[in-house]
């Protein structure tokens, strides 16, 4: 069970959090300007790396805030967590 440091609340057990997938996927500003393939890339394609991964977590059973984390997908070591926009 992972130990995750919520940037607001500190270190808590994984069971307090929900996972939000890859970070940094920005919703296109003008979806209508995108081709179907480009829209599909935003919707479905993911980097899914083996190694360092920027991802989102939500302190669902705590402050309910979303934050970012850099975690290794093989060792599961969390290098850092950070407030979004920081």
């Amino acid at each position: 069970m992972l130990l995750i440091k919520c940037p607001w609340c500190g270190e808590r057990a994984e069971t307090e959090f929900s996972y939000g997938g890859e970070a940094g996927i920005t919703r296109p500003r003008d979806p209508d300007a995108l081709s179907d393939a480009e829209w599909a890339d935003y919707l479905f394609n993911r980097t899914n790396p083996r190694g360092a991964h920027e991802e989102l977590w939500n302190h669902a059973h705590g402050c309910r805030r979303w934050f970012g984390a850099e975690r290794d997908t093989v060792s599961y070591v969390i290098a850092r967590t950070y407030k979004l926009g920081s």
């Binding site: 394609n45 993911r46 899914n48 790396p49 997908t73």
Partner: peptide, 16 residues
């Protein structure tokens, strides 16, 4: 799959 796909410059709609 995603690791191999990236070798060919492809992105896949899968997560591991």
């Amino acid at each position: 799959a995603s690791v191999l796909a990236s070798m060919a410059g492809l992105r896949l709609p899968v997560e591991s």
